[in-house]
């Protein structure tokens, strides 16, 4: 994380906020910072000025591995033909409230 150009204020970090206890961290945007401590402070100032969160994660953007949109169909296809994974696949008597 040291190739950061000093003209922009550091590397790109992705920011995740947990809005409140009981909820998962959600991606909210990104931030520039030269190290993790600064990324956390910058993320706090930019993304939680109005108590939007109780916890923050920052992750170097370069460390995120993503599925490719070009392979979206073949990658997610296996789920499409397994209707028996859904409760509505099964016929049961209505009266029994299953």
């Amino acid at each position: 994380m040291v190739s950061a150009s000093s003209t922009t204020g550091g590397e790109l970090w992705e920011v995740f906020v947990r809005p409140r206890r009981g909820l998962a961290h959600v991606h909210v945007g990104s931030i520039h910072a030269s190290d993790a401590a600064m990324a956390l402070r910058n993320a706090r100032d930019v993304y939680t000025r109005r108590q939007e969160g109780v916890s923050l994660w920052v992750v170097p953007a370069a460390e995120v591995r993503a599925s490719s949109p070009d392979e979206q169909d073949s990658f997610f296809d296996p789920a499409a033909d397994k209707a028996y994974r859904h409760p509505t696949f099964y016929e049961v008597p209505d009266a029994l409230h299953l």
């Binding site: 994380m1 040291v2 190290d35 600064m38």
Partner: peptide, 16 residues
């Protein structure tokens, strides 16, 4: 602000 960005980058480099 250049010196602040440079100092931050230097600090990060040292820590690494």
């Amino acid at each position: 602000g250049a010196w602040v960005r440079e100092a931050a980058a230097a600090y990060a480099r040292k820590q690494a």
